[in-house]
Design a protein around this nucleic acid. Structure first.
Length: 190
DNA sequence: CCCTGATTCGC
DNA sequence: GCGAATCAGG
């Protein structure tokens, strides 16, 4: 099978854009895309020019940090690098509408997870149903409920590092042979 | 320790 | 262009 997932196909880039715009973290986007790390996602985000999701117009003053200061010439020439820092005018003071007019397929309110969570009153019967979307590397993947049901979700608790399950479910999943030894009955499992 | 994004730089 | 390594922070 030639399941090649080489570069950023249009579909993947599109998905990346939407997920990023929706506020998902880079690691989660990477997990969902598959085959890429969060670094790749972040790198692509920057290359696409949509870095820095603006959530707060006022504060949130994030001073640009050097991040990597391998060799510092510590000379007058450093001004050259620093001068070319502001590519575009920042701090316009205007709130970003970020509502593209050509944004088809958005006739109604998109109702992003964030907005839903915000307007969450008290009428949420199910407490935090961890779906496949919410699953992360360090979350317990113990399935709960009927996989064919829309109610299906995962445990979602903190998984033991290196294991797919939380301590409780890992205990169920990995029962020591020693304990089963004396409890072993003839003719079948269970 | 878990996570987040930002940046640099070798490929 | 890509992304691992790294940085810097919550």
């Amino acid at each position: 099978m030639t399941e090649t997932v080489p570069s950023w196909s249009d579909e993947r880039v599109d998905l990346l854009r939407r997920l990023w715009q929706e506020g998902l973290s880079a690691s989660r986007i990477a997990t969902q895309l598959g085959g890429v790390t969060r670094n790749a996602v972040i790198g692509k985000i920057h290359r696409l020019g949509l870095s820095g999701r603006v959530t707060k117009g006022a504060e949130g003053d994030t001073p640009r940090k050097p991040a990597r200061e391998v060799e510092a010439p510590t000379g007058p020439e450093t001004a050259a690098g620093a001068a070319s820092d502001s590519p575009a005018t920042e701090t316009t003071g205007t709130v970003i509408p970020m509502q593209s007019p050509s944004q088809a397929s958005a006739p109604e309110v998109p109702a992003t997870p964030a907005s839903v969570a915000r307007m969450e009153p008290v009428s949420l019967a199910v407490s935090s149903r961890v779906t496949i979307m919410d699953l992360r590397e360090s979350m317990c993947r113990w399935p709960l409920g009927d996989p064919t049901s829309p109610d299906f979700h995962y445990c979602g608790d903190r998984a033991i590092t290196g294991l797919p399950y939380c301590p409780q479910h890992a205990q169920i999943a990995y029962q020591p042979a020693a304990e089963r030894k004396r409890d072993r009955r003839v003719g079948g499992f269970r």
